[in-house]
Design a protein around this nucleic acid. Structure first.
Length: 152
DNA sequence: GCCAACGTTGGC
DNA sequence: GCCAACGTTGGC
């Protein structure tokens, strides 16, 4: 099993929005970055992930997710009315993928970015804490996962 | 709102 | 293939 962290801006899709969905399942769509896409392609059903709020007053981990469907084409790339429309992606040759994720646990208290920063030396190399990191989907090592999980 | 960092684009 | 310009991300 592998572990991930996936960012969402709460003004676009918040943990509240997630919790309201039937079965708490949502496609993770709109990713338009090759490295993030490739990480999604590497995901397997049963992989676990942190649901993270970015670009907000208190960025941090808000929930625990699991992957319930492996990568498949992101149809929003084909929809001219979608903000994620990308004319370079075609049905014959899909450029972007999405996965389906399920919110397993909504945290009572978020694990804030500022808290994670205090653990930086223990966590070791962690893209979330590195300067200039802009990846919206990034891998978490098992050791990092096990260190962070008890704080949730 | 600011700004550093980074990815992408496109001319050459 | 290089690289400048541009757009976006995301914390503060």
């Amino acid at each position: 099993m592998n572990f991930w962290l996936m960012k969402s801006e709460p003004t676009t899709f918040s943990v509240d929005d997630f919790a309201k969905l039937p079965e708490q399942i949502s496609p993770w769509e709109g990713v338009r970055n090759y490295q993030a896409r490739n990480y999604m392609r590497a995901m397997k059903v049963g992989d676990q992930g942190f649901f993270y709020h970015s670009s907000c007053p208190a960025p941090g981990i808000m929930g625990i997710m699991q992957v319930v469907k492996a990568a498949y084409p992101d149809e929003t790339a084909w929809d001219p009315t979608s903000p994620y429309f990308d004319p370079r992606s075609t049905r014959e040759n899909p450029r972007w993928d999405r996965v389906d994720v399920q919110l397993v646990t909504r945290l009572q208290e978020p694990v804030l970015l500022k808290t994670l920063h205090t653990l930086a030396s223990e966590l070791g190399e962690f893209p979330l804490l590195q300067r200039g990191n802009r990846l919206s989907v990034l891998p978490v090592t098992e050791a990092q996962w096990k260190r962070i999980l008890p704080m949730t």
